[in-house]
Amino acid sequence: MDAILLQVLNGLDKGSAYALIALGLTLIFGTLGVVNFAHGALFMIGAFCAVTLSRILSFSFEVLDETQKDFLGNPLKVKTPYVESWFGPEVGASIIDWAVPLAILFSIPIMVAFGFIMERGLIKHFYKRPHADQILVTFGLAIVLQEVIKYFYGANPIPTPAPDAFKGSFDFGLLIGFAENAIIYPYWRMIYFVFSLLVIGGVFAFLQFTTFGMVVRAGMADRETVGLLGINIDRRFTIMFGVAAAVAGLAGVMYTPINSPNYHMGMDFLVLSFVVVVVGGMGSLPGAVLAGFMLGILESFASMNQIKSIIPGIDQIIIYLIAIIILLTRPRGLMGRKGVMEE
């Protein structure tokens, strides 16, 4: 029982990332009708916002220490971050330590601006083009973005740890009545799950309870009629592109302590996230979230030794297998709407 619960928890944090990326993908597809293969790259750019802020905060001056030698036998250059010099060693170290949470604030304006520029500069020219063209151009953009990141940050993963207060793990099993050490779960993964729920809730609340959101939803349902009412729906959809970019970026920022970011991390999530969108139902926001968590949990279960001993290699194909089953039984996905991508 505890092993199953642990895999559910693992699936929830994995599913959180899928759900956040798929939510952004669906927002863009539902509003603009664009299949955005560069969405994984936005997730990666968000992660590198955290890396960049961490580097900015760690920006240091060097002092030669004659008592220590470097690898060539020269006096060692000891680096001291400016923030430690300005605010004192303890406060300065704390600021650097909290780089990832601070990067949430840092990344939002960057990602919104990035999304806005991407939509106005490139994507809008492909609204009326076939989906194949959109996929090609956005996939090309994703490759360009990851190569740019690799040029500046290198190909190796870059450690971007969580604040000391949230490192390590806690005994989740004890909290819910299991034996000691039965279910150990990392603090940061729990934070990631809660954070993703807040972001997903925030996006839904924005669409559900604001006038702006109501217009966007109306536009998603019938763009032409909303336009005929004299509402500039294109502008709102552009803003939604920025919101979707910010959601992907935030997912990337918070993911950095879980796995050290590298230039390729967007591509690692992209294909899976598209499967999530298709399984959830093209254009369905609740469907994307539901499918994200569902596939995350099933993927975790498939990695269990008991399951793998019955069906070897199931962990490598489970998501695609589920996608085939869902699409055979419910061709529009779990919560897909009639008419979407069916013309």
């Binding site: 505890d2 092993a3 994995k14 975790s300 030794n305 793998k308």
Partner: peptide
């Protein structure tokens, strides 16, 4: 006690590490 093969494309190993605990 066990040898678990992990796909080369794996990025998150949490579901493979969790069973180690018990």
């Amino acid at each position: 006690v066990n040898n678990v093969l992990t796909p080369l494309a794996s990025t998150d190993f949490s579901s493979y590490i969790a069973p180690v605990l018990n």
